[in-house]
């Protein structure tokens, strides 16, 4: 049995309870989630809908003129399946205005601008709707740093951040999300023809088997090679995990005082909740 296998029903029960409790104890009844048409946002939205009901989930599609049209139609498919009314905010103009002002013309730069425009949209909808922004980054991409800092990585709570991509697939199946969304190639859709696996240079199925050993079981490179994984891939993965650590941390503060936020001023976010 794969180390990635998990009790799907129990996982869904726990994640639903997580969204319900961590939303309501901060005085909110709703979450807002960007629906990309992909499996991560579909699963996050499905968990939230089970937790808060369809009135408790505000789904937002944020297409760009260059987006694959299927992203929007698949986002609509997810919203329809969950009984949600999709709000669509086109980000073409906002992205173009920023790109012009910044003289950004490379695809990575434009991809980051798009991701941060979408973040801006979600946090403004959050304010308008009194809804917490629901995260859609999974554990695989958080570990690999395959996301935009303060862009798609920004959220108030994230039910899938401790699920590897293959576990996302498993729970999406458990929650009976549409086969179309489950079976298409994962893509950030930041430029035409982009796929996660093409850009990363390895498959989720393979990297997840490495990551679950490296992270959850603290496997050394030697142990991973003994398990049959290629050393160059193992080293590349480990290097990416270390290189992306900054993306997973709040900004560092220079310690001057006796008690410094995050260092020795230690309170949970759920303080008093």
């Amino acid at each position: 049995m794969s180390l990635l296998s998990l009790n799907r029903q129990l996982a869904v029960d726990f994640l639903v309870d997580f969204v319900r409790e961590e939303t309501r104890k901060f005085g909110f009844e709703k979450v807002v989630v960007g629906l990309s048409g992909g499996i991560d946002s579909a699963l996050s939205a499905a968990i939230a809908t089970r937790a808060l009901g369809s009135a408790g989930v505000v789904p937002v599609a944020m297409p760009h003129a260059d987006s694959d049209p299927a992203s929007l139609t698949d986002g609509q498919l997810v919203a329809d399946q969950l009984g949600l009314t999709l709000r669509t905010i086109d980000i073409t103009e906002a992205t173009a205005a920023l790109a012009r002002a910044l003289a950004t013309d490379d695809r990575v730069g434009l991809g980051n601008v798009k991701a941060r425009v979408r973040m801006t949209v979600l946090f403004e909808v959050s304010r308008q709707e009194s809804a917490l922004v629901l995260g859609t980054s999974n554990k695989t991409e958080l570990l690999l740093g395959y996301g935009t800092l303060f862009g798609d990585m920004a959220s108030a709570l994230n039910p899938i951040g401790d699920l590897y991509k293959m576990q996302v697939f498993a729970l999406a199946e458990e929650m009976a999300l549409s086969a179309r969304v489950r079976e298409k190639a994962p893509s950030a859709d930041l430029w035409s023809g982009q796929t996660d696996e093409g850009e990363l240079g390895f498959s989720y199925a393979e990297v997840d088997e490495i990551l679950v050993r490296m992270i959850d079981r603290r496997a050394t490179n030697d142990a991973l090679v003994a398990d049959g994984f290629q050393l160059d891939l193992v080293e590349r993965v480990r290097s990416r995990v270390r290189g992306a650590q900054y993306k997973r941390c709040p900004p560092i503060l220079a310690k001057v005082g006796l008690r410094t936020l995050g260092t020795d001023f230690l309170y949970q976010r759920d303080w008093g909740r």
Partner: peptide, 12 residues
């Protein structure tokens, strides 16, 4: 705290 959700069994 619940940690680990193995496929077999009914609890973490």
């Amino acid at each position: 705290p619940g940690r680990g959700l193995p496929e077999e069994g009914k609890e973490p």
